[in-house]
């Protein structure tokens, strides 16, 4: 069984990109389009790593991160926030919400893979 990664972003473009970049490495990837979907996915089948966008409808990445980290059953799942340039205040809130690391869009394949490998086998 490959390691499970949950990809969360409200744009299909980014999700598709990340899936393509990681596809050849045997990870088991699922996707969610907003924080609430992501929480449901985490509850249903806890992943080994979450790549989480910040600005999303319904529930943003920061709130999602806070909830994952507040739940003792899921707080050990590493969360890498996928950020955009020019939003320092938001990113700071994400850090305070307990995310483990971050990536900045546009994410290069090398960075993405390295960050993933720095958290899971």
């Amino acid at each position: 069984m490959g390691r499970k990664i949950l990809l969360v972003d409200d744009t299909e473009t980014v999700l598709l990109f990340m899936r393509m970049m990681l596809s050849t490495y045997g990870y088991d990837m699922t996707t969610a389009h907003d924080g609430r979907e992501a929480l449901a996915a985490v509850q249903a089948d806890p992943p080994d790593l979450i790549l989480l966008d910040i600005m999303m409808p319904v529930m943003d990445g920061i709130e999602c991160c806070r909830r994952v980290k507040a739940d003792p059953k899921t707080n050990r799942i590493p969360i890498v926030m996928v950020t955009t340039k020019g939003e320092p205040a938001l990113v700071e809130r994400a850090f305070l919400a307990g995310c483990n690391d971050y990536l900045t869009k546009p994410v290069s394949k090398l960075e993405l893979l390295a960050k993933v490998r720095g958290f899971i086998d």
Binding site: H33, M56, P57, V58, E87, A89, E92
Partner: peptide
């Protein structure tokens, strides 16, 4: 020292393309 704060987010969608 630290930096100040801004912006937040919420709308609905559950689709695949």
């Amino acid at each position: 020292p630290p930096a100040p704060d801004r912006r937040a987010a919420p709308s609905a969608r559950s689709t695949i393309k």
